[in-house]
Amino acid sequence: MTVLDIVFWLLAVISIGAALAVVFLQNIFRAALFLVLCFFAVAGLFITLQADFLAVAQVLIYVGAISILIILAIMLTREMWRGNPGGRFQLPAFIIALGLFGVMVWAVINTSWQISAELPLVPTTAAIGSRLFGEGGLLLPLEIAAVLLLAAILGAIVLVREK
């Protein structure tokens, strides 16, 4: 067992444990904090795969922005001090989640993963940049996504603006 294996198992246990805590905790604020921990562990997994840009982007976007938004949304929830009570849909939701989990496990096991013996590119940022913005890259989808986000922001402003 190499150091990398130990780190992988440590991060895997942390991320799955945190994810379970998000689902099972009654206290929503603590659940959101465990979500932050989960995102962090996933960023750690990216680092073990030498995907440094991806890891930093994970922390920047998910920990720095998404989780903050989630916490803000929690603050705006009515009667949040009641926590996270179980509803009528507990059993159906559990069955659907179990089915989804089964599909994902089946997909992971039955995919023939391509493994390359090549060393990862260093630095990764230049390669990602030229793939996204270079010749024959993904420039159009990227720009469409940007326009979509802008439209969403403008829509949100229009919705909440006082008359």
Partner: peptide, 25 residues
Amino acid sequence: DLDVGILYVVAISSISVVGIYMAGW
């Protein structure tokens, strides 16, 4: 000497906001 140094700085310093939130809550 990280290749993504400045991005790392931005990402890490955004975490302390979570700490401030936790203190308030």
